[in-house]
Computed example of a mutant assay.
Amino acid sequence: MSFIVAGRLDALPSPVRDHLGNFRHKVFVQRLQWKIPGVAHDATSEWDKFDGGNTVHLVAMSDDHRVCGCARLMCTTGPYLLRDAFPQLVEPGGLPPSSPSIWEMSRFAGSGLRDRTGSSSGMGLFPYVIALAQSFGATRVIGVVTPAVARLYRRFGLDLHNMGNVAASKRAHIVACSIDVDAALFKRLQRDPQALLYEITCYGQLGQPLA
């Protein structure tokens, strides 16, 4: 991983945007075989209805300017996956969160990214995502993941909280989970959030969601 860029989709340089769409297609459509509404069978890029507007994309680039990791952040005051695509995963009687201090992370993937332990699990991008979310005012980050990914996060030392409906999660083979964004998290990650932010090249005006 040589450098990391972040921005809303319309603010990212077009070569980065194009390579990001191709990378996501290779990971989520070709490798993981996800069936994503709106993605044609002959498409070479993967985008969905959540990618525009206020969504912030993080893109990890290699030394030869290839995309090697990605993630996106969405504030829960606007459209996001758990509320709008998987509301059944929320615990019975509960409501999906809607708060400027709660952000959702999705489309998280890495290829050959090394973390602090030297492992190439793809978790090398994770601290940057959390640091950026915190800079937006996030005190909690949520997500919809497979049980295997949840186990990966816990092996990485993260204190992951199950948010959801266990019965629905078993039927769908995905779970809703959250993590507190605080000093204890960055201590476990062994990274300084300000130093992480300094390493991110931002395009466009980030921070508070657009009106």
Rank of each mutant, 00 (worst) to 15 (best):
P13N: 04
G112T: 03
V141C: 12
V27N: 01
K187L: 13
L20S: 05
L81A: 01
L95C: 06
S111Q: 14
R17A: 15
R151C: 00
L152Y: 02
V141R: 01
A85V: 12
L58R: 10
R155S: 09
L73S: 02
H25S: 09
S2L: 08
W34A: 12
S14H: 11
D63M: 11
Y203S: 05
P79I: 07
G21H: 13
V145A: 11
I174M: 02
K35H: 04
D84F: 03
I102Y: 07
P100M: 09
S45D: 08
G137D: 10
R116M: 05
P15T: 15
V144W: 00
A131F: 12
I130R: 05
V5G: 00
L185Y: 10
S178Y: 02
A40I: 01
L89A: 03
V90I: 13
R151K: 09
C68S: 10
L113V: 09
Q33W: 00
H65G: 07
N165Q: 13
A168I: 11
L89V: 00
I36N: 02
D18K: 13
F186D: 11
H65Y: 14
M74I: 09
S119V: 00
L132G: 02
R107K: 13
P92Y: 06
I174S: 04
Q208W: 07
Y80G: 05
V27D: 01
T76Y: 07
D159V: 10
D51M: 02
P13Y: 08
Q30G: 00
A133L: 07
T76G: 02
R24E: 11
V5Y: 04
L12T: 09
P37L: 03
P87G: 03
S135F: 06
A172I: 10
R155I: 00
Q30M: 10
E199I: 10
S111H: 09
L95N: 09
K187Y: 11
D64I: 09
S106L: 07
H19I: 05
I130K: 04
S101E: 14
N165R: 13
D159I: 04
S135D: 03
A183S: 14
P209L: 04
D42N: 12
P209A: 05
G7E: 10
T76P: 00
G207Y: 13
T146V: 04
P15G: 14
L32C: 07
A167R: 14
L73P: 04
S101I: 13
G53H: 03
G122P: 01
W103K: 11
